[in-house]
Simulated scan of single mutants.
Amino acid sequence: MNEELKEYLSGIQLPDKTAMDTARLRWAHVAKPLNSLGVLEEDIIKIAGIRGSSLVSLQKRGLLILCADNGIVEEGVTQTGMEVTAVVAENMTRGNSSVCIMANRAGVDVFPVDMGVARDLVSGTRYPLINRKIAYGTKNFRKSKAMTRDEAVQAIIAGIELMGELSEKGYDLAATGEMGIGNTTTSSAVAALLLKQDPARLTGRGAGLNDAGLKQKMKVIQEAVAEYGPNCQDEIDILSAVGGFDLAGMTGVFLGGAIYRIPVLLDGFISAVAALLAERIYPGCRDFMIASHVSAEPAGHILLEELGLPPLIQAGMCLGEGTGAIAAVPLLDMAADVYGTMSSFEEIEIEAYKPVGDQS
């Protein structure tokens, strides 16, 4: 592994057990049925451990949208052309995309990041573009590896550094998003190699492929898995063979969440693949992640189960951009409010609920 990346990872420490135990005890005293907010309670406990304090604050939150193009688009695996990535990314800088509208409602700051869009972008002023361009898109992995190993590491480190910048600015929560035509193809290929499963089980229609397009997409991925799989020695090899700069950057964002102790919200399928890459690169990294929703893509459930992350939302979403992650933020806000402000059983002078099966 690259020495600079090793040095970053050496700074990761386990979540604070004392803070988590205190948060768990606080939930037990809140005047409501035990565990009745389900996954929300566990996520608040997790956040306490990540931040090292049982006083949970989610006041400052940011969405990193990593944008990049993928050379595999040349193979007819998408409904639209590569040029759409740049148009949508520029719209994001103006606040004119689905996730920007949702983020505005949820009180989340938006940071569009050019990781490897195929042309130079013109930034709007609402959410100014952050330029971390590694190259003008990846190569077509049907013809050669998508990127060099050095480029993959460079993109991962860029993602880590983005989280470092959020940490310096005092952010309490980060959400992940992406924009890149062809990135469900790269993500399906990476997932197939990580999970050692048939690509046909993991590959979906992305942004609306017809039957012929889906067949072509599966064929391209199956060929790539057969070609590159035997020679991939680690996760960075997998990423460089068939991944994308957005995936690599997001992998760094998840690693950065562990390094800088900022909880990171997964979005859907693509970010879950990046999350699994991060977990495989540094086992235990998932303890710093929160799953927002289950993607409608075929691998959505499979990846979350592999990560051991229960989702907050099941709504059949597959838009991308970070929309699922942003949809989960108000739920976490409400849970944090109950956790932080609701009266205890002692304060309202009623007997506390007992765990099921407790006969004492």
Rank of each mutant, 00 (worst) to 15 (best):
N231M: 12
E235F: 06
N231Q: 13
E168G: 13
V220N: 00
E235P: 02
E227L: 15
S188P: 06
T176L: 13
V153N: 04
I160P: 00
V190K: 00
G170T: 13
A189R: 01
K215C: 10
C232I: 11
E235T: 14
Q197D: 12
L209V: 14
N183W: 02
Q222K: 15
L193I: 08
M218I: 15
I156F: 04
G229M: 09
I181V: 15
A152K: 03
Q233K: 15
K215D: 14
L195Q: 05
Q222N: 14
E165S: 13
Q216P: 02
I160T: 05
D150V: 12
D234L: 10
I157H: 02
N231W: 12
T186W: 02
L214W: 10
G182I: 05
A155G: 04
N183Y: 04
I160H: 03
S187C: 10
T184R: 09
V153W: 02
V220K: 01
V190A: 07
Q216R: 15
I157C: 07
Q216N: 15
G177L: 07
D150I: 11
T176I: 14
Y171V: 04
A224F: 04
G213V: 05
T203Y: 08
A192Q: 05
S167G: 12
M179H: 07
L194A: 06
A175N: 02
L214T: 07
E161H: 08
T186V: 14
K196D: 13
A207M: 12
A158Y: 05
E235H: 08
K169F: 10
I156T: 03
A212T: 12
G170W: 11
A226W: 07
K219D: 11
E178Y: 13
P199M: 09
K169D: 13
A226M: 13
Y171D: 09
G180F: 03
A226C: 12
M163N: 02
Y171C: 11
Q216T: 15
S188A: 15
I156L: 08
E235Q: 15
A207N: 10
E151C: 06
S187I: 04
A155C: 11
A155L: 11
L162I: 12
G170Y: 10
L193Q: 03
G229Q: 09
E165R: 13
P230G: 10
A174W: 00
A175E: 06
E161R: 14
G229H: 08
L195R: 06
L166I: 08
I157Q: 01
I181P: 03
K196M: 10
L193D: 01
A155V: 12
L202I: 08
Y228E: 09
A174K: 00
N183L: 07
L166D: 00
D172C: 09
M218C: 14
V225N: 02
S187P: 03
I160F: 05
E165D: 14
A224C: 10
T203I: 08
Q197A: 13
G177I: 09
A212R: 12
Y171N: 10
I156Q: 01
L173R: 04
E227I: 13
S167N: 13
V190G: 00
C232Q: 07
L209D: 01
A192P: 05
Y228C: 11
M163T: 05
I221S: 03
L166E: 01
L193E: 01
E168N: 13
D198W: 06
G182C: 08
L202S: 03
G213N: 08
L166S: 05
G164R: 05
E161N: 11
Q154G: 06
T184A: 07
N210Y: 08
A158F: 05
A152L: 08
E178C: 05
Y228F: 15
L202Y: 07
D172A: 06
R205C: 06
